[in-house]
Simulated assay, not measured.
Amino acid sequence: MKKVYFIGAGPGDPDLITIKGKKIIDESDVIIYAGSLVNEQVLQGRKEESVVYNSASMTLEEVIEVMNKSIKEGKKVARVHTGDPSIYGAIREQIDALEKLGIDSEVIPGVSSFVASAAAIKKEFTLPNVSQTVICTRLEGRTKVPERESLESLASHKASMAIFLSVNMIDQVADRLKEHYSESTPIAVIQKASWEDQKIVIGNLSNIAEKVKAEGINKTAQILVGGFLGDEYELSKLYDKNFSHGYRSAK
């Protein structure tokens, strides 16, 4: 029996999908893609006879029904998600449902929007003596967030932060971050990272909400915050001439 492939299509630029993911899409008989977020260009090159479903208007039950029917007919199925499917991808519930039906699956990772956003502004999340930890989170909305993972609690670590699905609440984000970060803390908002119409807004906690609203950004954006966006950091030991490791002796 064939299996269902869950594919991370990347953040938007069709060239940022993995070679393996693109190959599976092109070979698949049935493609179910998250049409509200996935760039349709990643579907270019698919077989002419392949059948495409846009899951934006489908329920979980409808998605599973299509997968189940297709697999029973011996067809190859690609389930295409935006970014990397392991982050806010809602793939676990699909995989579990398939397992109950005796259907195997495989997950093909992709480039997440949070790393694409860092690339867009040429920043590194893990700067020596600034931060060696990256926190990916979101504000509670219709989907709840555990109380122990409140933004204030996570911000207390002063780690590099990537905040998903929350730009429509940018005022609240900035206010809650101020409980542990100073108002001068740098913050960046990147809308549709890697897309042709990408937007970048740079500011600090005191002015970012005003700047974001002025640009009309209220969805599909990453919020990055932390000292890694600043200019003060130590040089890496990796290339330090006085630091030896398994591949090089100190001079």
Rank of each mutant, 00 (worst) to 15 (best):
V167C: 06
S113P: 01
L16S: 09
E27C: 11
E234A: 15
S244T: 13
I135W: 06
M58C: 09
S112D: 10
V145S: 06
E93D: 11
E49M: 10
N242G: 13
I25M: 07
M161T: 03
D29G: 08
Y233R: 14
F164N: 08
M58W: 09
M161R: 06
R138K: 14
V38H: 07
N54H: 00
V52C: 06
R79G: 00
V111C: 05
M1F: 10
S244P: 11
T143H: 14
T82G: 08
K251Y: 10
I121G: 03
A78S: 12
V63M: 15
A159S: 10
A214C: 11
E62D: 05
S57L: 13
S131D: 09
S105Y: 08
K144C: 01
I187E: 03
G45A: 07
R176M: 04
E234N: 15
G216T: 07
S194H: 02
A9L: 06
G12R: 05
G89W: 09
Q94K: 10
D84K: 01
V134R: 04
H180P: 02
E149I: 00
I17L: 10
R176W: 00
T220N: 14
G230S: 15
S184G: 12
G8F: 07
K22Y: 09
K211P: 08
T59G: 01
Y33K: 10
I208T: 02
G35W: 07
D171I: 01
E147F: 14
I108M: 09
S160Q: 03
N68Q: 12
Y239A: 11
D171V: 08
S236V: 10
E49Y: 12
Y181S: 02
A193Y: 00
R92Y: 14
